[in-house]
Structure formats: C-alpha cells, structure tokens
C-alpha cells in the first residue's frame, strides 16, 4: 500500500516578538496509506493544524519534509486538483453568497457550476447557498467548507475538525459521507477532537502530543497498545472477601472502591465459579472495552484522574466517566 501522505522529521517553531517561542511540531513523522479514513488526534495545541498547514504549503517548517500524493510542497500545484481540504473554520468572502464563493474557487481549477451544485447538494446546503457567507451559522460554514473540499472529487481529503458546530444529524451525515468516501477508495485524513466519531469511522489513527507522534497504526493496534492487558470488571459484596476468593483461585485482582478489576484474558465463567464456590454472588461482571479516548488520554498524558467506579483514566475536566458513565467527583458534589 503506497503512502499518500508522508511526514518526516517535521519541526516548526513559532517565533513572536516579545513572546516566548512556541514549538508546534517536534520531529514529527508518520505516513498515511492510500484509501480509508485516517484519524489524526491530539489535544489542543499538539500541532495537528500546523501539520495540516505544512502539508498544504501554508506554513514552512523549520526542518523535515512533507509529501502529499508524492509531491513536495514546492510541487503541490501538480497534485492540488486531487487534494480537497478544509483547515480549521472555513474562510470565504463574507459578503459573497456560499454559491458565489464556491463558483469562484471552482473556476480557479477549471470546475464548472454543475460541480458546485453537486457539492452543495452533497452537504445539503443548496437551499441556503444564495445567502451571504457572513449570515451562515458555524455548522453551515463547516458544510460549505466541506463542499469546497469535495468540489474537486479529490483523491485525498484533508479535513481539520469538520464536524465542529454541526448538529447531531449533521455529524451523522458527515460521518456517513466520510465513511463512504473512505470505502470508495478515497483517502480521508481527518483531524478531530471527537474521539468517539474517529473510532467509529477511522481505519487508522495517529496520535500527537506536544508536536510529536506518540503512536500510529490501525485503530485496533492502537487500542491494544494503550491497554495491552485485557481486564474484567467485577462487582460483588463483600469486596474484600471476593478479592480474596479470586486471588486464591489464581486471578490477578486489583481492588477499587466498590469494584474489583481482574487482569488478563480470563473467562467469565471461571470468575463466577470461583466466587460461587465461596458463596459470593456477583452483581456485575463485565469485560472492559478499551476505547480510543482512554488510550488517547493515557498516551497524551491528558488523563489526570481515574474513575472511582471503574478505574479508567479520564481527563481532569471530565464530568462523567467515558467508560462506565459514572459521575466523577466534581460532578457528584455539584
């Protein structure tokens, strides 16, 4: 499988007069294979947008190289007709209508009005395409940005937070659209904060932290790398006796507040039997699914607390556990 995006040793520092330099990218390397949806994840300020800007030739890196469809930044014009992109919030002329903005862009690369109408239909913006861009809601601006990216019928689609501001129906539409594009042989490079969305539609991901790539690969492998050992959550009373029974049966048990976590790829019936033999009855037995968010938080160092109910890593500002849904301390007391 050939790579459509190649990033090698990319480094970028923003220098501002009178302010400290900001290292946006620090020796960043990854590649994106052809076809499918590639998720590009990272906390705010981790360098996702800067990477995209470097790829599109909007920002010059201090060191390193990028290749988009095999073209270095200086040769981007040879492939630009096959690259659809949207960087952050789409920017168009505020007083022009959405349609006029798209028609002007289309004319730059020899696309016609019919292509514009097709793209507008695809993002369900045809009805409001005659309105001035400045009157659009954030969601409509996003749709127009996606329409502009789709206008070229691109081989690769680079989207930076495309569902920002979209309502749930809009998010689903975009998710379906991107999934379809990925399945039809296009490559979709998707930068997003919505980890649930990414997990649903992406085939591969790369996770950034502080300008570097901490992991990249197929979603399944990345999930496994974050939680290499499978766990099973057990609730039974009394907890201390249950933990003792399981340990006696040879299980690796960690006791939490109101729960037990059994490490390893264990069978549920074996746990049930070990507890039942001691006259202890289960109230919950659940194989813990590892989600992208917990992996992301662990790898990027964003997880600053553990869920008291299930022990999963969660972000410091989270109000509910993303694994078990239990309210967290801040929420419980408020």
């Amino acid at each position: 499988m050939s790579a459509v995006i190649e990033v090698e040793g990319l480094r970028k520092t923003y220098r501002r007069l009178g302010k400290a330099n900001t290292v946006a990218l620090d020796d960043l390397s990854f590649s994106v294979p052809e076809g499918g949806v590639f998720g590009f994840l990272g906390p705010n300020g981790s360098g996702k947008t800067t990477t995209i800007r470097c790829l599109l030739g909007l920002v010059s890196p201090d060191a390193g190289s990028t290749r988009l469809l095999g073209a270095a930044p200086g040769m981007l014009h040879t492939v630009i007709r096959r690259v659809g992109s949207m960087v952050e919030t789409p920017t168009f002329f505020p007083t022009f209508s959405g349609r006029r903005n798209l028609r002007l862009l289309a004319a730059m690369n020899g696309f016609g009005n019919a292509d514009v109408e097709r793209a507008l239909e695809k993002v369900k913006l045809a009805d409001r395409a005659g309105d001035p861009f400045k009157n659009y809601s954030l969601g409509m601006k996003q749709r127009l940005g996606i329409a502009a990216a789709l206008l070229k019928d691109p081989a690769i689609l680079i989207l930076d937070e495309p569902v920002n501001g979209l309502d749930p129906a809009g998010i689903k539409e975009v998710r379906d659209l991107l999934r379809d594009l990925g399945r039809s042989g296009h490559t979709v490079f998707l930068s997003s904060h919505l980890l649930g969305e990414v997990q649903q539609i992406c085939d591969r991901v790369a996770i950034l932290a502080k300008g570097s790539c901490v992991t990249t690969g197929p979603v399944g492998e990345v999930l496994a790398s974050g939680h290499p050992t499978a766990t099973t959550l057990v609730r039974a009373e009394p907890g201390a006796r249950a933990a003792g029974a399981l340990r006696a049966a040879g299980f690796d048990v960690v006791q939490g507040e109101g729960f037990l976590r059994v490490a390893g790829d264990v069978e549920g019936p074996a746990i049930t039997k070990a507890l039942a033999d001691e006259g202890i009855y289960l109230s919950e037995l659940r194989r813990e699914s590892v989600d992208l968010e917990s992996v992301f938080l662990t790898l990027t160092g964003e997880a600053t607390q553990s869920c008291p109910a299930c022990g999963s890593p969660v972000a410091s500002d989270a109000k509910f556990c993303t694994t078990c849904g239990a309210p967290l301390a801040g929420e419980a007391t408020s």
Partner: peptide, 11 residues
Amino acid sequence: KTLATHLTWEP
C-alpha cells in the same frame, strides 16, 4: 482570511 483557502486551490 481567504488567502489560505485560495492557496489550497493554487499553491
């Protein structure tokens, strides 16, 4: 801020 958009069409 339309220059960024234009440059993604003519780099």
